[in-house]
Structure formats: C-alpha cells, structure tokens
Simulated assay, not measured.
Amino acid sequence: MRQIFRTRLSRIMVGAWTLARQGAERFGGTAFLYFPVALHLVWLEEQRVHTRWRSGIGNQFVLPGVEMLQKVTRGQLCLPGIEK
C-alpha cells in the first residue's frame, strides 16, 4: 500500500511541475509561480473517478489510488478487495 501511495504522489508531483513549466513557457515568469495552481489542478484530476476501455471487457472504472485487476472477465464485479 505504501508503494501505491508513493507512485501516486510521484505522478501528481511530476504532473504539477510539467503543467507549471508549460504555464511559465506560455505566459512568462517562472514555474515556481505557477506550481501552486498546477498542483491544485492535477490533484483535482487525480481525485476524479476515471473509466478505462479494456479490450474484450468494456469500460472499467478506475478509482483513485486503487490498482486495476489484471485478470478480469466480461461482466465480472471489480471492486477493491474482491477477488473471484
């Protein structure tokens, strides 16, 4: 669980710095000035529930901070902690 948290936090920080650099390049200034807003935007995007298309299965919900099951059959209930 700790590794999942580190990976997620790393993804958020890298995304925020990337967005801050793009803002600085486009509008001028330094990336440091854009970082707080970029961090907020990336954090909101990370908290949103996503769906991902998987071939042969269809749309599958991806909850923030929860890894997707790799072996899923069509119509199988996929919730964290439920393994059939």
Score class of each variant (00 low, 15 high):
residue 4 I to Y: 12
residue 5 F to E: 15
residue 5 F to Q: 15
residue 6 R to Q: 14
residue 7 T to F: 15
residue 7 T to A: 15
residue 8 R to S: 13
residue 8 R to Y: 05
residue 8 R to E: 11
residue 8 R to G: 07
residue 12 I to C: 10
residue 12 I to P: 04
residue 13 M to A: 10
residue 14 V to E: 12
residue 16 A to D: 00
residue 18 T to V: 14
residue 24 A to E: 03
residue 27 F to P: 01
residue 27 F to K: 01
residue 28 G to C: 07
residue 28 G to A: 07
residue 29 G to R: 00
residue 30 T to K: 07
residue 31 A to T: 01
residue 32 F to Y: 07
residue 35 F to V: 03
residue 36 P to H: 02
residue 40 H to L: 09
residue 41 L to K: 11
residue 42 V to R: 03
residue 43 W to T: 04
residue 46 E to K: 07
residue 47 Q to R: 15
residue 47 Q to C: 12
residue 48 R to M: 06
residue 48 R to G: 02
residue 51 T to S: 13
residue 51 T to Y: 11
residue 52 R to H: 07
residue 55 S to V: 07
residue 55 S to R: 12
residue 55 S to A: 13
residue 58 G to E: 00
residue 61 F to R: 15
residue 61 F to Y: 10
residue 61 F to A: 13
residue 62 V to C: 10
residue 64 P to D: 03
residue 67 E to T: 05
residue 70 Q to W: 11
residue 70 Q to R: 14
residue 71 K to G: 05
residue 72 V to M: 03
residue 74 R to C: 06
residue 75 G to S: 02
residue 76 Q to L: 08
residue 77 L to I: 14
residue 78 C to R: 03
residue 80 P to Q: 09
residue 81 G to W: 00
residue 81 G to Q: 00
residue 81 G to D: 00
residue 83 E to W: 08
residue 84 K to G: 11
residue 84 K to H: 07
